[in-house]
Design a protein around this nucleic acid. Structure first.
Lengths: 237, 237
DNA sequence: TGCAGATCTGACGGTGTGTCAGATCCTAGG
DNA sequence: CCTAGGATCTGACACACCGTCAGATCTGCA
């Protein structure tokens, strides 16, 4: 369950300069401790893509290394060159997803939360959540599971990306407390955290709602209302 | 992924009368289609208990039939006599958990939701959720995963048990809409559904919050506030 | 062109799966 | 008390996946 310690080794600047395609992953190591070159990185990426695809079509429990490798046109041994196990590959996917989530906190930070604008800003955030979960559901659900199972590597990623949004919302709530629109004892961080939970869970189970007759339109409106009021204290409508 | 069709067979009334210990599970069949007797049911239960225990200590992905069987002091072949696979056993555990959840909807139905009582009733429901998730976390997280993966057998159970609570809350919301404490367009069911989502998700990730410094006390207060307002339209405090 | 890594894989021992046929257990009826 | 016959369990097996090597193959460059 513990990530293997990264072996410290002298860098390979010639390679590094050659392909600056990798954004900030210059810490990559294969299982044998060497820094992969162009070909290696391509294989690794192919394996990641296939893992993501697999996750979208197969129950997590049934995702096998051999299937991923076959799909990627390579052998299981190659998979193990880059990842300790399936979980490790998913962890990398989770990191990617978390990076993509940055635009969600931007919505909170860049939006206006005064009485007139709050509903629209809240709506933008709600839509962002729904869309984001739609795009990344397979990875996010494994992330949720692993976090709940006590895996700290996943928890850190999850907390990290939700944290940015939560902090941003907490600032808004804090302002509302100061302005006495929210009751004095209100904990801004707890408020923001609970609302982010609401957003995350509804987004995750969106289709579960339709299943029992709730239209997405109403769902969305309710989320917006609950969020806007909870965070600003402005009564909606 | 599809449950095996139950083979229709003539019942065994003599056995049935002998041990009425089983509440409503008289539809039980072993893999070979026969109705298990006392000994069989005991073995089955032992396997279920071990499955639950396993789930509490081991990542779902790593829960193996052979481990469950070993733990139960029996052989894998016996496990397969009662369950098609690990998932099938967890499904039964999920049904049990859902049955236990009945008391949560009772809190909503039996409680008062007038302005004076709403916070206390909401608090009781919040505590019920937190406690319930605490007691059944391992099964509930697998239920969430399977539901999200599109498994309808789990979805039905999940929806079924949350449905009772949601319906009960929706009635309260409906009353608030009629009384014009909630805006006219409000969909009571969607409102209740979103709030139940909030409760479920916060309860599921309770310890994730503590991880980043939010005290359970504040978390609870926020949930209560959000729930009481959202469902009754009464401003708290 | 040929060498020195870099990358990949065949092959293998180990473990888990799922399914029989038959062994073992239990109990009702003699 | 004994025994037949159904209820229950399991050894054994064929198959699949895991995880790890040593060595085969590929690639870029001197």
């Amino acid at each position: 369950m513990v990530p293997p310690p990264r072996v410290a080794a002298e860098p390979e600047p010639s390679e590094d300069a050659a392909d600056a395609a990798a954004p900030d992953e210059d810490e990559l190591r294969a299982s044998d401790g060497r820094v992969p070159g162009r070909r290696g990185r391509a294989t690794r990426q192919r394996l990641l893509d296939c893992t993501r695809a697999m996750l979208a079509t197969t129950a997590y429990r049934d995702v096998k290394v051999i299937d991923i490798a076959r799909e990627a046109g390579t052998s299981p041994a190659t998979f193990y060159q880059y990842f300790a196990d399936v979980e490790a590959a998913v962890l990398v996917l989770a990191e990617d997803v978390a990076r993509e989530a940055a635009h969600l906190s931007a919505i909170v930070e860049d939006g206006d939360w005064d009485e007139a604008s709050a509903p629209a800003t809240a709506a933008a955030l709600v839509d962002g959540f729904l869309r984001f979960w739609d795009d990344n559901r397979p990875v996010l659900r494994v992330m949720d599971l692993a976090t709940d199972e006590g895996d700290d590597r996943f928890r850190k990623i999850r907390v990290g990306f939700l944290n940015d949004i939560t902090r941003a919302l907490a600032e808004v709530a804090q302002a509302a407390v100061v302005a006495k629109r929210l009751p004095k004892g209100t904990d801004p961080m707890a408020t923001a955290g609970v609302l982010v939970s609401m957003l995350a869970h509804v987004a995750a189970h969106q289709y579960g709602f339709e299943f029992w007759g709730i239209r997405t339109k109403h769902l969305r409106a309710t989320m917006v209302r609950q969020l806007a009021w909870g965070i600003t204290g402005h009564l909606p409508d």
